[in-house]
Design a protein around this nucleic acid. Structure first.
Lengths: 242, 242
DNA sequence: AATTTACAGATTGTTCAACAATCCTTCGAT
DNA sequence: ATCGAAGGATTGTTGAACAATCTGTAAATT
């Protein structure tokens, strides 16, 4: 880490680099600005657990490591702070966000709101197929004993549920919420069985969805989320030794 | 407007200037940074309709008008863009956001998700009282024929519903959504009866909430939101002559 | 010894000036 | 009328500078 190469690591997967159009109407491939690439790089490192909650992010250090100016890093910080991935303490610096007990409940409150709402509204056959695909992805990961992939599949499952609503804003909110949760998982080192325990739930929810029993699916999801929150809170109690 | 006084107008009401605490634990009144004050000022002008959708915001102009540097304005832009109040076109500039037909539906999708969810979960007697207060506020405004106040009261009503969930994140999301809608109203010049038409709905929802009939209240709210979206879409159709 | 004070170092907040890259417009050539 | 080449304006980004603030340490005080 912290190599002094004046280049930013490859953007394996990034956020939202949509294509804009110029005034004359010409379509233009949106090449992400340096500030956005810095934000992407930091998001990536946060998602991978390279930067753990509580870690201090010094402007000058990051600027040097990434070969950009302090002002550019600053812009990236503003963006990440708006996503709650980092916290800015005036005159003291920015730190990787750290979910407290209250935050966990809060995050689940948001999830209950948007996931249940999306599920209750149902979706097109393609949308439902995407949910099903995520369930199967989870089964494969479980069979292969790949915990990392299992966690990813679970996030895909819930992302697919929200995606049914076809709402860019809900998708964006869900993306942020999942990013926040990833942050927490890296801190708490959730045990291997954490996700596996819920595989049958995903299956049941998906079946109800496929059967068109939306209200029942929503109820199942709600119960799932409540249980998941309880589990996470326990984990936090154990690991919450700052 | 655009006087060259090197000072930012008084922060009549601002966003989130919470109090942080220093390392030693001393409490510290968070004096908003210049960048945040710039963002606040722009938010205010956007809310008041001083800056209409589509308006271009030139960095240098705003920097001069507010007596701050371009970089500071830039930071404010990043924040406002994350709230979808402005749109940044690479190399072209930032413009006041303008809700298109799809955006209206999207905003209402978010509102349906979080408002209905919050209402279904109910709240403490104080929370319910806050909802009731907003209803009465609306009645007074209607009696006084104050359309501006009527619109504000309506936003208070829906804000109070979401506030029942006691979730900072949901509150923040709702705040952003309402800010977006305000932007639209200034563009579309909604007619006077727009809000009045829904006063009975607010009353009915509030009554159901006070009676503890949460599911019925939620259904009423859902119907309300659907109708409101339809109305707004019509207005947009008339006014959507860019 | 415990607490307070003073001070020095480090980091953030903000400004300013500069320059490359890009866009928009205008003008001229085909 | 269409296309292409300046020209001007604005954004994107950098680098340096300086004030304000915080942190930690060492000295002074009680």
């Amino acid at each position: 880490m912290a190599s002094s190469e004046p280049i930013i690591s490859s953007p394996r997967f990034s956020a939202n680099h949509a294509a804009t159009r110029t005034a004359a109407g010409r379509l233009r491939v949106a090449v992400p600005s340096v500030a956005e690439r810095v934000a992407d790089e930091l998001r990536l490192q946060l998602a991978e657990g390279a930067l753990l909650p509580g870690t201090r992010l010094t402007e000058s250090t990051i600027a040097e490591d990434l070969g950009v100016s302090r002002n550019t890093v600053r812009e990236a910080f503003v963006e990440l702070a708006s996503e709650r991935l980092v916290v800015r303490h005036p005159n003291r610096g920015v730190f990787v966000a750290s979910l407290e007990a209250g935050d966990i409940h809060d995050v689940y409150t948001v999830r209950r709101a948007i996931e249940v709402s999306a599920l209750r509204a149902g979706g097109s056959p393609e949308d439902v197929a995407a949910v099903r695909a995520a369930v199967e992805e989870g089964k494969r990961a479980a069979a292969a004993g790949d915990d990392e992939a299992l966690g990813t599949a679970n996030q895909h499952f819930h992302g697919a549920i929200v995606a049914m609503a076809g709402s860019p804003r809900l998708n964006s909110i869900m993306g942020q919420v999942l990013a926040e949760m990833r942050l927490f998982f890296h801190k708490a080192t959730v045990d291997a069985q954490f996700y596996q325990h819920y595989l049958p739930d995903n299956e049941a929810i998906c079946l109800a969805l496929e059967a068109g029993e939306l209200d029942r699916a929503a109820d199942l999801l709600l119960a799932y989320l409540d249980r998941s929150e309880d589990n996470l809170s326990e984990v936090h109690g154990e690991a919450g030794t700052d």
